[in-house]
């Protein structure tokens, strides 16, 4: 009878003894991430994607303020946006600035004086570049596609087709 009691009490005691204090846990996911405001806003800036040198294959967005503040009527907006979109790809091909490079950003795209045009077609964004594109690395292609989609449309998930001097990439979707 007593043996039974003791046997019953032992796990309880063990439970009490081991359960004291605050215990460590595994990583627990809790809800949404934080969303920060990035200045300048979408209308006054261009978003470029470079590669993080600390972790390869990882695109990091960079916000460049538009050099020429846009003035004009909303009707003319589309033309200017198109020009800005061209500009964005040109800037992308130029690579990260000195400040950006200091934070560990780099590009996989070759440094070229690119002649670029971006159009919005029924199948998505069409990009023409006067350089070879099929030899670009996977990360470089994603840089190109994400920057183009972001620059030409409000939705970076838009399908993008890139036509270079040696062939066509895509249509592909940006994934960041």
């Amino acid at each position: 009878m007593r043996t039974g009691h003791i046997l019953l009490a032992l796990p309880l005691l063990a439970l009490t003894a081991t359960g004291c204090g605050i215990l460590a846990t595994d990583v627990v996911e809790v809800g949404d991430p934080a969303v920060v405001d990035v200045a300048p806003g979408r209308e006054q800036s261009t978003l470029l994607y470079f590669v993080s040198s600390s972790s390869a294959n990882r695109l990091m967005p960079v916000v460049r303020p538009n050099e020429v503040p846009w003035e004009g009527t909303p009707e003319g907006g589309s033309r200017l946006v198109r020009q800005d979109a061209d500009k964005a790809l040109v800037l992308l091909f130029e690579g990260p600035s000195k400040n950006e490079a200091a934070t560990g950003l780099r590009t996989e795209l070759p440094f070229v004086r690119a002649q670029v045009s971006i159009d919005l077609g029924p199948d998505g964004v069409l990009v023409r570049v006067n350089s070879p594109v099929t030899t670009l690395s996977e990360v470089a292609r994603r840089q190109l596609i994400c920057t183009a989609a972001q620059a030409r449309t409000a939705d970076r998930g838009e399908a993008v087709t890139v036509t270079g001097t040696d062939g066509v990439i895509g249509p592909a979707h940006c994934s960041v």
């Binding site: 605050i22 215990l23 460590a24 846990t25 990583v27 809790v30 809800g31 949404d32 991430p33």
Partner: peptide, 9 residues
């Protein structure tokens, strides 16, 4: 794209 926490002793 989630916040996470972990208790560490």
């Amino acid at each position: 794209a989630h916040g996470s926490f972990q208790r560490v002793v």
